[in-house]
Simulated scan of single mutants.
Amino acid sequence: MGKLTAPAIVERALEIGDAEGLDAVTIRRLATDLGVTPMALYWHFKNKEQLLIGLADHLIAGFAPEPADDRPWQQRLRGLLEGLIGVLRGHPCARNVLEQVSQTSVPRFLAVWDEALGLARSAGFSVEESCLITKYLLQSAITIADAPVHYQPGRTAEEVAEIFRVKRLELESLPAGRYPHLVEMAGPMVSGTPGLYDTFGVDLICAGIEALAARR
């Protein structure tokens, strides 16, 4: 292969992490897959901790704020939330990566965090409120990306359909007199619409922040 680069190492680590989990991502495994010696990788990442920081930085790169962004704060804050959800949804190992690294060690995460704090302050929130908003945004993104069973990778269409069927029947079999709304909404409660799940969740979080800002 050509000259070994840090991006090539990170890309392969991400592929392994998504397919097999982060425990499978080791210097020795990466060296074998990339056709080099472990020492060649140590030139770029001295240990797994540094590799995970590189992974986190690479993941965040896709939606880190652009300089001189003059969009309204509402649009920019929404973009950060949607970007983080996209990363978490697109890479099964992303949440694990972000939870295992020190956030202050990831330059692009710091940029996103700083951007979110600044946007909250520009919306009229206090320092303490702005700190809380950024924490809520991160946890909301994780919650939205931790989607129902129909988002889980590795399931066949038949398996998903059967899961839907069983769960729907469980709800439809409840006493309608006692749980009328659960019985009525059994179908959408179980399966729902993947696109709506994400967009409505983002709308819900952002609308709450905007409503609070309007009261300032």
Rank of each mutant, 00 (worst) to 15 (best):
L41G: 09
P72R: 10
A111G: 05
G90Y: 03
F63N: 14
H58Y: 05
E49T: 15
L81Q: 12
A94G: 06
E66L: 15
K48M: 07
P65W: 07
T32I: 05
L117G: 12
L119E: 07
K46H: 15
L59I: 00
G124M: 10
L84I: 04
P107T: 00
D69L: 14
G79Y: 01
L110V: 08
H91Y: 13
Q100A: 08
A116W: 03
V106K: 00
L51Q: 06
R95N: 01
V106D: 00
A94Q: 05
E115R: 12
L84S: 09
A64I: 12
N47A: 15
D114I: 04
S122C: 12
H58F: 08
L41I: 15
Q103D: 02
G79C: 05
T32N: 11
D114H: 10
V112T: 05
Q100N: 06
V97D: 03
T32K: 14
R78A: 07
A94T: 04
E66Q: 15
L52A: 09
R108A: 03
A40T: 13
A123E: 10
V106Q: 00
P92H: 03
R108H: 02
R95V: 00
G35W: 03
W43Q: 15
D57Y: 02
F109G: 04
G54I: 04
Q50K: 15
D69Y: 12
G54A: 05
G35V: 03
W43L: 15
G90L: 05
G124F: 07
T32V: 07
A111C: 04
R71Q: 15
A94I: 03
V101S: 01
I53W: 06
L117Q: 10
P38E: 03
Q50M: 14
G79S: 11
L80F: 04
R121G: 05
H44M: 10
L84T: 05
A120V: 11
V106W: 00
Q75M: 08
N96D: 09
Q100Y: 00
V36A: 08
D69T: 11
F109N: 04
G86Y: 01
G86N: 04
D33N: 10
A40G: 10
K46W: 12
L52E: 08
A94C: 07
L55N: 06
G86D: 02
A120S: 15
D33F: 04
L80E: 08
S105T: 04
V36C: 06
R78P: 06
L110F: 01
G62I: 02
T37K: 15
L81P: 11
V87I: 14
L117M: 08
L34D: 00
V112N: 01
G83L: 10
R76E: 08
G62F: 03
P72L: 10
A31D: 00
V101Y: 01
G62Y: 01
L119F: 07
A123V: 07
V36M: 04
E99R: 10
A31Y: 01
V36K: 12
C93I: 14
R108E: 01
F109A: 10
V112R: 09
G118N: 12
L84D: 04
W43I: 14
F45E: 06
Q50T: 12
A56T: 06
T104R: 01
W113K: 03
A61K: 09
L77Y: 09
L34C: 05
P72G: 11
R89V: 14
V112L: 11
A116R: 13
P67F: 08
N47I: 13
A116Y: 03
D33C: 11
V87S: 12
V101N: 01
P92I: 06
V87R: 13
